[in-house]
Design a protein around this nucleic acid. Structure first.
Length: 258
DNA sequence: ATGCCGTGGAAACCACGA
């Protein structure tokens, strides 16, 4: 079973690129972030025609998350991160597919830091960690994936010294990610490639992609039950080089079926 | 060191992103 995550940066503006990638990569499950589309503007028919069922949580202009699944209908578990009924951003959706719980998340950016946006990021992170702990406690096979807006270690940043005060790399952010992983989650990419430079995002400007000045911020966390089922993982880096592409590249994992 | 590019929505600029 292949599961992918892709921050599309506008699901409608990016539809040709998304369909091209789905056709090429054919993931069984694809978690999308930054739909930037309200609920009723989600391109369901085009995705159905491409062979995917979908659940999504849209929002006008910003955020928005979706889970696509080939052949089987995702069974929605929830569409908000528990813990704050005042939080109206669509940043989390969770479903069960083939017996695996899949949480698709878009963690807040948090810049500028410090400030209210950074406070929101840390508060959201705290709620995520509480929810993740519940998933661990349930002992079910689970995957948490999406745009975490965190570079966990220096190896994940092209010039770490420039990012120390950024919301994506500040001590508090990295510590929150570390706390999350230490609940018992496995960072799939780092399990298979502990020492390699691997990026999932490149800025649009300054020829960042051409210079490979990137960041690793899109992650797969595997619950203990899935840790030993990880067969492969990677980044579809070439997709970032396509015309009218997102600033993120798709990331994927392959899990043993039985 | 930096939103320099790109998206969406409303209004022909602005908010937001990482």
């Amino acid at each position: 079973m292949r599961i992918a995550t892709y921050n599309v940066n506008g699901v409608n503006g990016r539809l040709p690129v998304l369909l091209r990638w789905l056709e090429e990569a054919k993931p069984d499950v694809a978690c999308l972030q930054e739909l930037k589309a309200p609920e009723e503007k989600f391109p369901l028919q085009a995705l159905k025609d491409a062979g995917y069922h979908a659940i999504w949580h849209g929002q006008k202009s910003w955020n928005g998350v979706a889970i696509l699944s080939r052949n089987v209908e995702p069974v929605e578990i929830c569409r908000v991160l528990p813990g704050d009924s005042e939080d109206l951003h669509s940043r989390y959706i969770e479903a069960e597919i083939n017996g695996i719980i899949i949480g698709c998340l878009y963690l807040p950016n948090g810049n500028p830091a410090p400030g209210p946006k950074f406070d929101y990021k840390l508060a959201w992170f705290k709620r995520l960690n509480l929810h993740a702990a519940e998933l661990i406690k349930s002992d079910k096979p689970a995957v948490l994936t999406g745009d975490f807006n965190v570079m966990p270690i220096e190896l994940d940043v092209y010039k770490p010294e420039r990012w120390v005060n950024d919301a994506l790399f500040r001590r508090e952010t990295r510590e929150a990610f570390k706390d999350l992983v230490s609940q018992g989650w496995t960072d799939a990419i780092r399990k298979l490639y502990p020492k390699e430079t691997i990026y999932t995002f490149w800025d649009y400007f300054r020829n960042a992609y051409g210079r490979d000045a990137g960041l690793r911020i899109d992650h797969f966390l595997l619950s203990p039950k899935l840790k030993n089922k990880l067969l492969a993982a990677g980044v579809d880096k070439h997709v970032r080089g396509w015309e009218k592409t997102s600033d993120h590249a798709p990331v994927w994992i392959e899990l043993k079926d039985k």
